[in-house]
Write a protein that binds this DNA or RNA. Sequence first.
DNA 1: CTAACATAGTGGACGTGTCATCTATTCCCA
DNA 2: TGGGAATAGATGACACGTCCACTATGTTAG
Lengths: 161, 161
Amino acid sequence: MERVEWLTEREERAWRALQFMQMRLDGELARQLATDSALSYPDYRVLVALTDRPDGRLRLFELAAVLGWEKSRASHHVARMTSRGLVDKEPCDDDRRGAFVVITERGRRELADAAPGHVATVRRLFVDLLSDDQLDSIADVAESVLANLVRREPAASRMRL
Amino acid sequence: MERVEWLTEREERAWRALQFMQMRLDGELARQLATDSALSYPDYRVLVALTDRPDGRLRLFELAAVLGWEKSRASHHVARMTSRGLVDKEPCDDDRRGAFVVITERGRRELADAAPGHVATVRRLFVDLLSDDQLDSIADVAESVLANLVRREPAASRMRL
DNA sequence: CTAACATAGTGGACGTGTCATCTATTCCCA
DNA sequence: TGGGAATAGATGACACGTCCACTATGTTAG
């Protein structure tokens, strides 16, 4: 095992603060939605993704891709949402393996109720605290970290016997 | 319901990218630990917190505070770790409600095995990609977001009947 | 054409995290 | 000092997310 550099003070500060921020932020967002609406944070994200489409429908694998979820997670979550009447599943004629996820009237109503409070909270706890430069800096960092992750990913698929 | 400003393009870019980064980063970190060691990411953080103390022990509520966890989460997680022999629980004489969480030899061994790979992954996927300015910027942002969260928190406790 | 492979989606098992609730103890102040 | 409030911790119920294995359908190369 070669020598491993532990983090410098500067690195540690950034890494710790980021972890804490994300944990607390997600917690608050989830809590706000749970308190002020009947939607969980994942529910909310699914419904937003669906209403971004003119017909309010997405193939399950597209939904997973848009949200950055694994397909299994999307399947489980959509199943839960279907049982609560927030979305419906419909078969797909082009590809008979496939399924569409469609937002219901009830889903639209609950999203419309929840959205203002959620957006206000994102502003209050995050966006409104930051300058334009800080927002850009965050986006730059996050995008380069993501690009690096994606670049590494195909390595696994390339591994063939 | 007053009018709510949805996010500008710049704000949305930062917010979305940050969410994605954190989700993917946590996933990779968890996956790396699961693959290369017998520890989960939460396990790892508990053991690090304990070894930061000279005697390898912390009161349960202190552990929760250090990690930024709710006490219930700490209690559940420590129970799971105790059953796997990574930590022990010991009664506290000063405060008979209390309990100490103590790292075991086995816990120390597994942490020592897991640490190099974990740190290397944090470097590879995050720290080493960023400049000093970027690291400082992240830390500044995260700390001000956290300070804002803490500032709001006491409001709830102040609410009395 | 068909055999191998890839992809869409499902479902069970399990670990994780939150909320609400409960007990026991300690703190505090009138 | 006695009694109400705060605190430490445990626990049960439930939602969430991952891994893995599986079915069914589509795609492609020989």
